[in-house]
Amino acid sequence: MIEVLALPFMQKAILAGSVLALITGILSVFIVLKKLSFIGVGISHTAFGGVALGILLGTNPYLTAMAFALIGAFWIGGIGRKGSLHADVSIGILFATAMALGVIFLGFSHNYNVDVMGYLFGNILVLTSGDVFASIIIGVVSLIFIALFFKRMFFAAFDEELADVNGIPTAFLYYLFLTIVSFTVVISIKMVGIILVSALLVIPGAIAFLITYDYKLMVLLSIIFSIMGIYLGLLFSFFLNLPSGATIVVTLTTLFLVFFLIQPKRRRIT
């Protein structure tokens, strides 16, 4: 086991995975409480269009993915806040369109060495030092913003209008949240892939929701489950020679099923 941890690619995977677990652990709590479970799917699939455009243009696909993810997030957020359509409708339109654009962009591209499967399903064991560094920078910036507005974000998640009446900048917090989700999705692409990242944005928070009535404890538990999912998934992936991203998601889902069957919160009141 110790020898495994000494491997450079494993050290990079653990470091970047820890950053990702920390951010997704926190974000997933807000996603579950705000009933935005499909927002991760919407933004990540939108990012695929950006990846494909980057490949077509010969630029860094992560930069174009970031641009697409942000546009997607603000599209979903803008339509959702205006209230004329439910968010799931805008997500349904957006992610299919962005995936379609991605396929068209790849069709125009003559770069046949691109590992499309790598973008779709990720591989945390092939990260470069640059990937790890980018994850840390984005992670730290995201955490600073979350720490600044943590309680206000919770108040808004409980009831946005009540928070607004208290003078809390709810629209700003909403778009800040979407921006952080977009950045997180993009740094996750290489680790768990576009298809699987939404699981990290939902499952840890969903498990914690089953356990506690205390919102601060819910965040702590969500981070712990996120870290557990990534670490255990990595180990299973390494020792059983399974795809890393998919193994992480299946590990998290197994944890969710265990707590769903136990239903610890329903067994007590406080």
């Binding site: 309680k151 919770f154 108040f155 409980f158 009540l162 928070a163 208290n166 003078g167 809390i168 919102y215």
Partner: peptide, 11 residues
């Protein structure tokens, strides 16, 4: 915690 939320104002 809910009552404490009420004390939070502005940015």
């Amino acid at each position: 915690d809910l009552v404490a939320f009420g004390m939070m104002k502005s940015w």
